[in-house]
């Protein structure tokens, strides 16, 4: 199913949210988790990571650097080519989803999500990247 050794970066300004996403990831087989409280800190974590990050799960609305800006930065940087990016956010307006898709997001999860919601989206991302 999932590669349990994949290093996951969880980005959200709410600590409870990071806890929830982390817990769900653990239940789905990921054991190597790291967190950041906003897009800027996430960018630092990406660059200074002792081991390469294999999956980014990020919120949209955060101070300093939003999730969509983080996504654009990641997609613009060849060092992080091929890293799956999932947005987990309460924002669900059509124009926002379109913007995220255009910016290269792999999956879009709307808060509040159930465990199954996240699991299904993670699985589809995994399948997509497993093919390539």
């Amino acid at each position: 199913m999932f590669a349990p050794t994949t290093r996951v970066l969880i980005v959200d300004d709410m600590s409870t949210m990071r806890k929830i996403v982390g817990k769900t990831c653990k239940e789905l087989g990921f054991s190597d988790l790291t967190e950041a409280a906003d897009g800027t800190l996430a960018w630092e974590a990406l660059q200074n990571a002792p081991a390469p990050i294999g999956l980014i799960i990020s919120d949209w609305n955060m101070p300093n650097c939003t999730g969509i800006d983080l996504l654009k930065r990641v997609r613009a940087d060849s060092r992080f080519k091929g890293v799956p990016f999932i947005l987990v956010t309460a924002e669900a307006e059509q124009h926002q989803v379109i913007e995220a898709v255009k910016a290269g997001v792999d999956q879009y999860v709307v808060k509040p999500f159930t465990k199954d919601d996240l699991k299904t989206k993670l699985e589809s991302v995994y399948k997509k990247y497993a093919k390539s």
Partner: peptide, 17 residues
């Protein structure tokens, strides 16, 4: 200190349906 969004998320995890 807990926002409504977090509360909704916590509850939705425990009560998916």
């Amino acid at each position: 200190s807990i926002s409504m969004l977090e509360l909704a998320q916590l509850l939705r995890m425990g009560y998916p349906s």
